[in-house]
Design a protein around this nucleic acid. Structure first.
Lengths: 254, 254
DNA sequence: TCATCCGACCTGTCTATACATCTATACTTG
DNA sequence: CAAGTATAGATGTATAGACAGGTCGGATGA
């Protein structure tokens, strides 16, 4: 017997390869999107679903938990399960990973290492890395290109601990997390980034080959170990005419 | 008997008010952060945990599912459960909601409605809203202030369907989603935003009272109904010297 | 030697049940 | 009438067990 892949009815197929909890979750999602259940309304009780579809309550709970995770419904102990209001004002912008995105468009990406040497921490750097002034650090200066056109200009600093040589290998993945992995003796586990709107400095304009006053995204990143102590710090300057950040919010985004 | 709130040992307290699955999840999280289990390593099997702690396998699974959701571990059917590598390069920037943030800092926020009237869609607008040219829309033009200083300049357009009067009430929440709710007959369920780096135009500089060439965040937003048809469209210009976006990635962020 | 099969072990799904805990309502009691 | 009390009904936690299906290595057989 051929097994259905999509369920457009209100019935569950216990013999399908698709788990029952998933079928029910999709069924509820469809009903909510179609407006059969409206925001704020209470859904039938778990036991009601269980007996209606002839399945166990735990299976119903699994389906409901899927939609709770998706932000579509919420539960209140002792009261019931309710349709949520779409959270249209919570904004999380996604910065597309250029290293993965650009090759997909048929462009060839490159990394040009301008400088990689050991420096002593100045005031700003020692504060960012929470180390004494003059602590040894490795300083990387590089640009990321697509079709030989500069896109990003980066300055990165790692606290110098290992005696590892500075390898060509860095060029494959010059992300702060990878540099930290290669050159620090602590495992990087968390990372903080702050994104600013800015205008290119003269130095950046020269490196990126853009006109003065070009708008850019300026990202300042710190990378930490599992004790929240900094391992590395860096800045990235993204050409504003080549990058944008996108955000999708609400229901039905799969 | 007094009940423990925090478990620093390797034992689970079945009589605690804190659910067993949660205790186990936190215990595993601690072990992973401390490096007792390292990225890529396999964890003990579910049945092993179950018999080790004298609890049911389903309870172990619930604990594991918490950490899977947190991105700390992942499972492979037939093989086992593994410690994930921290995903330090997935970047999602959070745009702080100024309407909620600024009052917290003791500043008073305000909204100044510059204009609210019915217009006819021009080429750009008709394309953004997927309606014929000259379709009636409501155009809002407003600024958001903190301590009477302009912070954001917004232009918003809603497809005109309801005959609702344009009320003072809009001023309480002039978000695109709220305007759509008040003035459109379809329920807004999803929203797309694109953030650009830009420099103020002369008009924006005048409204925001900033110097020419000030960097800004330019956000273009479209709001859709449950059939992914546009309801409204708008642009927001955030002063670059007052706004920044932050992102935290990796483990142990709770 | 090499390929196949089988069994041990793992996670994934589902069930039926029990009890805890919270909410709202109806009822009892002073 | 007011305050406290039972009760029904909802979700939350936990159990023990069954079976499905993927993985891997070792035993078996050609």
């Amino acid at each position: 017997m051929k097994k259905k892949l999509i369920n457009q009815t209100n019935k569950l197929d216990k013999n399908s390869v698709i788990p029952v909890y998933y079928q029910l979750a999709k069924l509820l999602e469809r009903d909510i999107l179609q407006g059969n259940y409206k925001p704020g309304e209470v859904l039938p009780a778990e036991n009601e679903f269980a007996s209606r579809y002839g399945i166990s309550r735990m299976t119903v709970r699994r389906a409901i938990s899927e939609l709770v995770m998706a932000g579509m419904i919420y539960t209140e102990k002792g009261k019931g399960t309710f349709v949520a209001k779409p959270k249209l004002d919570d904004v999380e912008f996604e910065l597309n990973d250029f290293q993965r995105e650009i090759p997909r468009k048929g462009m060839k990406t490159g990394i040009k290492l301008l400088e990689a040497r050991i420096v002593r921490a100045d005031d700003e750097l020692s504060q960012k890395l929470e180390v004494p002034k003059n602590t040894k650090c490795i300083h990387f200066r590089l640009i990321v290109t697509a079709n030989d056109e500069p896109l990003v200009y980066e300055n990165k600093y790692i606290i110098f601990t290992k005696q590892n040589p500075i390898l060509e290998q860095e060029l494959k993945d010059p992300s702060l997390s990878n540099l930290a992995k290669l050159h620090a003796d602590r495992l990087p586990t968390t990372s903080k980034r702050v994104l600013h709107a800015a205008i290119v400095t003269d130095e950046e304009a020269a490196v990126l080959k853009v006109r003065p006053n070009t708008p850019v995204f300026l990202v300042k990143q710190t990378i930490y170990d599992n004790n929240k102590k900094p391992i590395g710090w860096g800045t990235s300057v993204y050409r504003g005419d080549r990058y944008k950040l996108t955000s999708y919010t609400g229901w039905g985004l799969d």
